[in-house]
């Protein structure tokens, strides 16, 4: 596994092992397709999933491609950061057809647009008109209080101590 890490580092990327059977590599947005196809040719033929992390303080989304090599039984996490304001990413469907569903889901829950994906229709949510719900700036409590008409007392009846200021 260390060969991969060294190879990726020599390609000018930031790769590091995460234990015995896993490594991660941080890739700039433009080189994702290149690195993924390299890894696919190097044995990481299985695409396990695509995840998204909202780093709201940095103003960025992080996309994590999870690949697996059955031959060597190791796992690769390919991470890339994209802007939160205009989240656009290239679709990886030409590498793995399976990406279509994952990208559709991430588009629905984070609002990331994948160029090249033919179908980004809503998938899970019913008639959703608000902010994509898994973004950190979406207030889920305020939303459910408004939609389901209830009022939550967040103090739980615990009184703040009285002080003469």
């Amino acid at each position: 596994m260390l060969d991969f890490v060294e190879k990726l580092n020599s390609m000018g990327l930031d790769a590091k092992p995460l234990g015995k059977w896993e490594f991660e590599v941080t890739v700039p947005k433009e080189r994702v397709a290149e690195i993924l196809s390299y890894l696919k040719s190097a044995g990481f033929r299985a695409f396990m999933g695509l995840a998204c992390v909202d780093w709201i303080d940095d103003g960025e989304f992080e996309l994590v491609y999870n690949l697996q090599s059955y031959g060597e039984a190791i796992q690769a996490l390919v991470k890339t950061r994209i802007s939160r304001v205009k989240p656009i990413m290239d679709s990886m469907m030409q590498l793995w057809e399976l990406c279509q569903v994952y990208e559709r889901e991430i588009h629905e829950f984070f609002g990331v647009k994948f160029v090249g994906n033919p179908n980004l229709e809503p998938f899970f949510l019913e008639n959703w008109l608000d902010t994509p719900p898994l973004r950190k700036d979406f207030d889920t409590l305020a939303y459910s209080q408004e939609l389901f008409e209830f009022k939550e007392d967040e103090t739980h009846g615990i009184e703040t101590p009285e002080r003469i200021e």
């Binding site: 967040e154 739980h156 009846g157 615990i158």
Partner: peptide, 17 residues
């Protein structure tokens, strides 16, 4: 003390005097 109310993940506990 209200620790139970503060820890409840379902917000199910309210302290009443």
């Amino acid at each position: 003390c209200g620790n139970c109310a503060a820890v409840c993940p379902a917000s199910a506990i309210t302290m009443v005097k």
